[in-house]
């Protein structure tokens, strides 16, 4: 077929109407939605599942949690039980991860340490969540002078070097799990507050907020029902990334002798005790706590990264 030449002003020749046969409509309704619409969360889940590294993190995390719960129960040995006749045994059928210099079972102690690490991590993230979300939500929603002063306070706390402050608090309050969590939360919540505030500042100008206000919605209700659900993505990412920081801090403090106290086991304590074995060659005493602490940090970090990508609306396809 030759395309009509448009240079001249001759009349274009179209085929006469009777040659056109209307195409039959398919019986199916054209308006029907072929694929199910994906909500924000469904789409995020779909994208997260596709991310292999993040899934690897999630699976190792689930395994770690299962082992933290059942590991100490499975083992016939007690965490603090010493058996000097069985000290420094290499891994074997009866002691899967070997024993330490006091004859304590490393397998039991490793999973007991997992409990402590996960507990500290999750608690720190939860406390950060509660304080940070309330503070950031109020600050962002109120705006103006309130926001200004609330953010100055955050700025000052944010500037505190957190590990120094944690060490200081540990000295004052005495070592212990509760102290670690309190100490971590004192500076930790500011990051969450900043994120929530930034989001709320943007969101509060949207029409759905205005609509709620028109219907007489109170500040509390608007923040809780309208603003926060829309901020959940960044909040979850921040929480996932807080956990490894807290776990690291606990291990670090235990390592320098300010964390969990002997005879109880935490990965930091075990690694610190095992330092002396470098020259004597009982590799299992350092290897197992070192491996599992690294695995936990790895799992939370890649899961957090994956969530960040999955929950970012800009990357949505």
């Amino acid at each position: 077929m030759v395309l009509p030449n448009r240079t001249g002003n001759e009349k274009r020749q179209f085929p006469p109407d009777e040659l056109f046969i209307p195409k039959k409509r398919k019986a199916r309704n054209a308006d029907a939605i072929v694929r199910p619409g994906l909500s924000y969360w469904q789409d995020a889940r779909r994208r997260l599942v596709k991310n292999k590294l993040a899934m690897a993190g999630l699976v190792s995390l689930i395994l770690l949690i299962i082992m933290a719960i059942f590991g100490p129960i499975l083992s016939p040995y007690e965490v603090t039980k010493q058996a000097l006749t069985e000290s420094n045994l290499p891994p074997s059928a009866s002691h899967w991860f070997g024993t330490d210099n006091l004859g304590r079972d490393v397998f039991t102690r490793t999973w007991y340490g997992a409990r402590i690490s996960l507990f500290v991590g999750v608690m720190a993230a939860l406390v950060d969540f509660v304080i940070g979300v309330i503070y950031g939500g109020i600050s962002g929603y109120k705006g103006g002078r309130t926001d200004h002063y609330m953010m100055r306070i955050v700025e000052i706390l944010y500037g505190l070097p957190y590990l120094l402050m944690v060490i200081l608090l540990m000295v004052v309050m005495g070592p212990g799990l509760l102290t670690i969590i309190v100490a971590l939360s004192i500076t930790g919540w500011t990051g969450m507050a900043r994120i929530v505030r930034g989001q709320v500042l943007q969101l509060k100008h949207y029409e759905f907020v205005l609509a709620s206000k028109t219907f007489g919605g109170k500040t509390r209700r608007i923040i809780r029902k309208h603003l926060l659900p829309n901020t959940m993505g960044p909040i979850i990412v921040q929480m996932t990334l807080t956990v490894p920081t807290a776990i690291f801090a606990e291990a670090f403090l235990s390592f320098i002798g300010l964390g969990v106290q002997a005879p109880y086991a935490s990965w930091g304590v075990m690694a610190s005790d095992a330092l002396s074995t470098i020259l004597t060659g009982q590799w299992w005493r350092l290897f197992f706590p070192a491996f599992f602490i690294s695995l936990t940090m790895f799992a939370f970090n890649v899961l957090g990264d994956g969530l960040q990508d999955a929950l970012d609306p800009k990357l949505r396809r």
């Binding site: 490894p244 690291f248 291990a251 670090f252 390592f255 690694a271 610190s272 095992a274 330092l275 470098i278 020259l279 590799w283 350092l286 070192a290 602490i293 690294s294 695995l295 940090m297 790895f298 970090n301 890649v302």
Partner: peptide, 22 residues
């Protein structure tokens, strides 16, 4: 990079001593 972020520095230090020095 993932290893660097996941392995705490005190563990890294002990590993380095074990492998490189001992």
């Amino acid at each position: 990079a993932v290893i660097g972020i996941s392995v705490p520095n005190f563990i890294m230090a002990t590993l380095l001593i074990q492998v490189v020095a001992v």
